[in-house]
Amino acid sequence: MSRKSNITFMQVINEALDQAMAKDDRVFLMGEDLAGGATVKHLAEANQDAWGGVFGVTKGLMPKYGRQRVIDTPISEMSYMGAAVGAAVTGLRPVPELMFNDFIGYCLDTILAQGSKMRYMFGGKASMPLTVRTTHGAGANAAAQHSGSYYGLLGAIPGVKVVVPTTPYDAKGLLLAAIEDNNIVVFSEDKTLYGVKGPVPEEYYTVPIGKAQIKRAGTDLTIVAIGKMVFVAQAVADQLAKEGVEAEVIDLVTVAPWDQATVLQSVQKTGRLIIIDEAQPHNNTATDIAAVVADQAFDYLDGPVKRITAPNTPVPFATNLEQLYLPSAQSVLTEAQEIITDLKPIKA
């Protein structure tokens, strides 16, 4: 079924949650102010939520499904995230929301030491059908404690899958795939993309977790990017195309376990790799990709692997500094000049 107008990333998340809850009674949401206004009489009488999530993503779901399935929790991240682990290991399919991924410190134990390890340390007898929705990303002047990108940190934990959707279409399909998955899936939404519109089918569909997507085919240079950095990669590719350099742009989509086959295949074809990630530069996804490529595709490389990331700093508040913090098409072209310059004579 096609719909007439495009819908926003945020509406898409809401629609996916709605469809997952309609499909399976075991699916429920929990988090802080997913509805808001619990026990407030006039809201209850009108069956209304207050906020519908701090960004409004879950608006309307409580009135539809009730407070039993859209559970507003106290501001107790450790206990509601751990409760989600306990509910998942006993057979439900919780979808807790961690309002900002920067709050992970409060509840990391439940993922790091409990949920991610139960299947392994219990000898394969546990499933962990748990989808953690959270938000990441700089660019909203939300400053150091509300703007970080920690999907790489979470993706470093065995037993955890991490997806970072770039488009509304993928957001819906990946969220539904995450909720169907029998593992912890961290579904990390870039809050600065919430207003982005795109074509999205109304019906239920899934997009495979663990599969990177080639957004633009090219033969000269591979650019791997995560989340909104894919748009930066596309801008870089557009710019390079004007100079006769054909870049292949890969949206990693899944940060853990990331799609090595697609990346390696591309690098084997192009011999050059730029990785763009707005997370910090060390001990992170970009470093991991660079390491695997250096290991597995060394003989195919015609130049150094370039990682274009945020600097090794917290996210600054001031608009000009925050813009400087984020990789941009210009910063990519400047920082990766070495391998790009190499290409131009070949193409000329």
Binding site: I71, S79, Y80, G82, A84, V85, A87, V89, T90
Partner: peptide, 25 residues
């Protein structure tokens, strides 16, 4: 899990939230 034993736990206090989740279930 077949006996309802949700795990000894190496994290001190790690059982609290899991118990909450099992009770919520």
């Amino acid at each position: 899990l077949d006996q309802g034993m949700l795990g000894a736990n190496g994290m001190v206090g790690g059982g609290f939230p899991i118990a909450i989740g099992a009770a919520l279930r």
